[in-house]
Design a binder for these strands. Structure first.
Lengths: 197, 197
DNA sequence: GTCTATAAGTCGATAGAC
DNA sequence: GTCTATCGACTTATAGAC
């Protein structure tokens, strides 16, 4: 079918754009990367590129989505906490990606009309829920102190991960994963609170 | 002296701009607030406003600096940890400011040539040092477990504070201070690690 | 020294031809 | 699906009035 052919071409071009954009962003970050630059890298005009993605922001969002999916794929089966730490260690090798994530998350979370607002909202709920449930299981099996507020701890783990990216960008010798692990270790070895009568 | 007079006028105008800009930003945030808008609010043209600050980014940086100074001023004498938590509680009442801080910190930390890059770098070092020293004192006095890595914990406290702002912007019912307090409590009541022989 | 007015350039976004 | 052309918003820079 002709329709099938042209559709497939669009998808292929879209993926070529994403793959190239991912590399460019990883070198240069979001800031200072214009749509025209990305368009040149895939031999398109700026308008030609924007035909595949509605806007610059949607293009960048697509990049993050691909990245999230790839992370999830190659970590399938691992312990959630281990996954979490591995992703953070991996982030330290892709500075442009970290830059893109922090910039976009700041812009998108602060503006409900931002194209990526819903994506981030859903992402936080999903990961927080996943972490919370895992921690509850560990509490049930006695691997974790029962009186830790795991719902808050899950939010904190993500917040540390996000926040450490800023400090890491200022000083790339910072070990982001080690800082997240510190919180996790504190939670694991926190002494059960004695109930005051 | 005439020179003294005109200099004072410049400073006065600068402060009027900052005061007004602070209000406008607190309502509208950084995103969607143009220099022209701010200029209109203080009865200046865009170029007139930019004469006082080199650029939009430097203007916004000046706003954050004023905010930091005001926070520090009205908290003088309080315990550092209490100060930290009080500032976070205060942030929850100034959404535009939180928006400005997250947007600017993302943009500035990721780009060494950003006008606010050095400011953020210095700010993180300063606060981290302050927190670290305070914690060391508490360890010395026995108020805090001796084997907690306070240098990392200080960085973590700031990271949680920064990171929770994103989740709070997505859901303003989030209690940012409570999450920071969770980390602090975990550190305080963490059981001393037994040394493996 | 401070401000007005304006010019030039960049960026993202969009309309319409092919 | 890709292009040309153009629009409007923003920023920087500067010439010159006061």
């Amino acid at each position: 079918m002709a329709r099938r052919g042209s559709y497939a071409k669009g998808v292929a071009k879209r993926e070529e754009i994403l793959r190239t954009a991912l590399e460019v962003v990883d070198r240069n970050g979001m800031r200072g990367t214009s749509v025209r630059e990305l368009a040149d890298a895939v031999d398109l005009t700026q308008a030609g590129l924007l035909h595949h993605f509605g806007s610059k922001e949607e293009l960048f969002l697509a990049i993050l989505t691909v990245r999230d999916d790839e992370d999830a794929q190659c970590m399938a089966g691992l312990d959630i906490i281990d996954q979490f730490l591995l992703v953070i260690e991996h982030n330290a090798k892709t500075p442009g990606m970290v830059q893109l994530f922090t910039s976009l998350s700041a812009a998108a979370t602060s503006d409900p009309s931002h194209p990526a607002h819903a994506w981030f909202a859903e992402r936080y709920v999903r990961f927080r829920t996943l972490l919370t449930e895992t921690m509850r299981e560990r509490q049930a099996s006695g691997e974790m102190p029962a009186d830790v507020d795991v719902e808050k701890l899950a939010a904190v783990m993500m917040a540390v991960s996000d926040g450490m990216q800023l400090q890491w960008m200022l000083d790339p010798s910072t070990d982001m994963a080690a800082h997240v692990r510190l919180v996790w270790d504190l939670a694991l070895r926190s002494a059960p609170r004695t109930v005051a009568s």
